Simulated assay, not measured.
Amino acid sequence: MKIIKVFNNNVALTKDSNQTEMVVMGKGLAFQKKIGDQIDTEKIEKNFIAPSEGFAAKLSELLDEIPYEVMVLSKDIIDMATKELQTELSESLYLSLSDHIHFALIRLEDGLPIKNALLWEVKKFYKQEYQAATKALQMIEARTGIQLPEDEVASIALHFLNARQDSSGMEETLKMTQIFGDVTNIVKYHYGINFDEDSMNYSRFITHVRYFAYRMLRGELSDDQHGTLYEQVKQQYPESYACTKKVQAYLKPTYQMQMTKDELAYFMIHIHRVSYREKNI
């Protein structure tokens, strides 16, 4: 394994026999090393494939500011989250998570904790990511002795969401999360109910809202092909229709998106299911 770039005494960019570029980490691993030298593989504590050409430059810049211990901690958290979520996470998460954890520790030390406005939504709609992020905070406290606030659980969970291989970016993730929360609140306050979040109907409802928000933000809403279904459901579930119109009234000015009759019909069906069960328990 040959060195192609030395970041600092503990981190280097290498190339293996298959010409694969890999970031390797370990105490003193690159001390007094230069380009072309071989790495002592016994000193490698962590390693991962460099995802892009620009990754090395960004990592080099980050290492000027962030302690080695935080970088190692971030890699351990990513390894934990990969197992917990049973999915591959983008290697770019290493940069964003290291930077976030380092900044969060500094902010807390300076008495400047930041509130996460999406704490409730993340906790309710992304339970797996939230649980993994909770473990991440426990790992941070165990390594640093610093207990970060619960708001940071939501922030780290959002980083996990954004790093999923099928993710479409943090901005879209944040918008989708906001939509989940707002639509759920509209239904909750319209009917004056609290949801049983363990119920199958609630799970179906959230899945529909998530899929709808994803397609809406990508401009992939279905065409009106079931106008008859819309009229039928509208007549059969008038209360759900009234609630769905509130959802439509929220989405149109907020996201400049008009729901089709198909979407209105499916929303009415799911809203009826989730509200009927809660009102009749």
Rank of each mutant, 00 (worst) to 15 (best):
S275W: 03
K279Q: 04
Q178Y: 06
A30Y: 02
E141M: 08
M200V: 14
L221N: 10
Y126M: 13
Y94K: 04
A56R: 10
A136P: 13
A163N: 11
T207Y: 04
I179Y: 03
A265C: 12
T20I: 13
L148Y: 09
F195K: 04
V122S: 03
H190N: 03
N280P: 00
Q165E: 12
F55H: 01
I206K: 11
V72C: 05
S275Y: 04
G169A: 11
I106N: 08
A242W: 06
A157R: 06
I78R: 03
R204N: 07
S90M: 06
A249C: 03
I186E: 04
D110E: 14
D196P: 01
S60C: 03
M257N: 14
M176Y: 02
V233S: 15
E171F: 08
L118D: 13
S17T: 03
F103E: 04
L119P: 12
I39H: 01
L63T: 06
T177S: 14
A242F: 03
A142L: 09
L63P: 00
I49S: 02
Q256E: 14
A242N: 10
N10K: 11
A265E: 05
Q128Y: 12
Y214M: 03
Y237E: 10
E109S: 14
M268W: 05
F48Q: 04
K2D: 07
D151L: 11
L161V: 02
I114R: 13
Q178D: 03
N10W: 09
L137P: 15
N47P: 01
I269E: 11
T207C: 06
L221V: 15
S203G: 04
V23P: 05
I78L: 14
E69Q: 09
T260L: 07
F103C: 04
G54A: 07
Q165D: 09
V209A: 05
M1E: 13
K175T: 05
T254V: 14
H102R: 01
I101L: 08
M22K: 07
S240R: 10
L85T: 04
I179T: 00
A163E: 13
L105Y: 07
F7V: 13
R277F: 07
T41I: 08
D16E: 03
A265L: 09
H159Q: 08
L13Q: 12
P67H: 07
Q248I: 01
E141V: 12
F31E: 02
V187N: 00
E141S: 11
S203A: 09
T41E: 04
F267A: 06
W120P: 02
E88V: 07
D224G: 09
S74A: 09
T173E: 10
E197M: 13
G111V: 07
H272S: 11
G111E: 07
V183P: 03
D224W: 15
A117Y: 14
G145I: 09
D76T: 06
Y276N: 08
Q256C: 11
L85F: 07
Q32W: 03
V11A: 10
M22W: 13
L174R: 07
P113S: 11
H190C: 00
K124F: 11
M80D: 13
E65W: 12
N162Q: 09
V183R: 01
V247Y: 12
A50Q: 02
Q232K: 14
I269C: 10
Q225N: 15
L93D: 13
I3P: 15
T41L: 05
S222H: 15
I193K: 02
L73M: 13
H208N: 12
S98Q: 02
E231R: 15
M176T: 03
F195I: 10
Y126T: 00
S60W: 10
